[in-house]
Design a binder for these strands. Structure first.
Lengths: 195, 195
DNA sequence: TATAGTTCTGGAAGAGCGTTCCGCTTAGTT
DNA sequence: AACTAAGCGGAACGCTCTTCCAGAACTATA
């Protein structure tokens, strides 16, 4: 989905500029919101505005690309963490990575839900990438006998998002502590949940 | 909250212009979204842009005012319907009125959740006005023995919003039918709810 | 009703941003 | 090295936001 399958292989400098633009857009979106001036993004990327418009004709194209880029980066972190840490630690680290993603993408969330049909496919992209990523970490931890089985990766993604997002208003530490609590719960948790 | 208590009573033509602007903004927001050009709104209201900016210096001020205006209109419809119809019919008509509000305000919703602190007070304004309005209709219908008691006005407001909003994507009729079903349920519904 | 004192209005003006367009640059090819 | 075409930059145009103030409109007072 992020790479198109057309016969045109894309020139090397063009690909470099696209990467710069995505990096720049990520920063600028975080700083000035999704409605930041196009020139600000182009300047930070070290390209002209024409180049920005060549690769991302509409604002939604850029927002979508940044979002997918971040989803990919977060998903790709899972296998890396898995081979560098024991299962529970990998899971814990990845969930913290995920909350970072949630916080930095909060500005994008309102744009995503704005009704623009260009964004319709993003929620399923989100689940399609992050679900399996988290799933593999969970499976590894369950198989190692270090945590109890949990309903589904999707539920956990959802729960963690609810847990950490509203905290952004207050102190960021709070969300982090709540998440640690939840991971503890996975390890030593009670055998029954409420109704 | 909508009227300030200052000693200055506001000149008659100014009040007239404010009303025109609110009407115009309501239409334009529905047609072109909350980011519609200021001139479009001013023209439709038959005033200059200067007048728009005098009364609503920031875009958020206008959005907030339109929202509150619509909430007020929806809440004020309750007592009127109550004296024109029997309790169940009044309830049904008001809920349909409420779904209209939800649909037309869908464009505003994303702006409302955009994180602008100017909008922080709106959710509680929404509940504070619509909760009692619906509450009085429910009480009347319950006392008349025509429907069974329901958890709380707030829950019903929430449920109806969930029921009718996602339907906007498909056919508007669907949400309407779902709502009718719910009202039927209130009247003849089962004695027990699930877990 | 006439007058004085305010408030309020309209739209021109200045600044800034989005988007397009096309001559020039540079990667890839022979 | 020379050629070809993809890709680049940024000037230019048009649209929008926002400010500002001379004058119109309203209200209070006599």
């Amino acid at each position: 989905m992020t790479q198109n399958t057309a016969p045109r292989p894309l020139r090397a400098d063009a690909q470099r500029n696209i990467d710069s633009l995505l990096d720049a857009a990520k920063s600028v979106f975080a700083t000035s919101g999704v409605d930041a001036p196009a020139k600000e993004i182009a300047d930070l990327a070290g390209v002209g505005v024409g180049t920005l418009y060549r690769h991302f004709p509409k604002r939604a194209d850029l927002v979508k690309a940044v979002f997918q880029h971040e989803v990919d980066a977060t998903a790709d972190a899972a296998p890396l963490l898995a081979e560098q840490h024991d299962p529970v630690m990998a899971l814990e680290k990845w969930l913290h990575r995920y909350t970072e993603f949630l916080v930095t993408k909060r500005g994008l969330a309102s744009a995503l839900h704005s009704g623009d049909p260009a964004f319709d496919a993003l929620p399923s992209y989100f689940l399609g990438r992050l679900g399996p990523a988290l799933g593999s970490l969970l499976d590894a931890a369950v198989e190692a006998g270090e945590i109890r089985a949990v309903a589904s990766p999707k539920d956990l993604l959802y729960a963690v998002s609810k847990l950490s997002l509203p905290m952004g208003d207050e102190e960021p530490e709070h969300g982090r502590r709540m998440l640690d609590l939840l991971v503890d719960g996975l390890q030593h948790g009670a055998d029954k949940t409420g109704c």
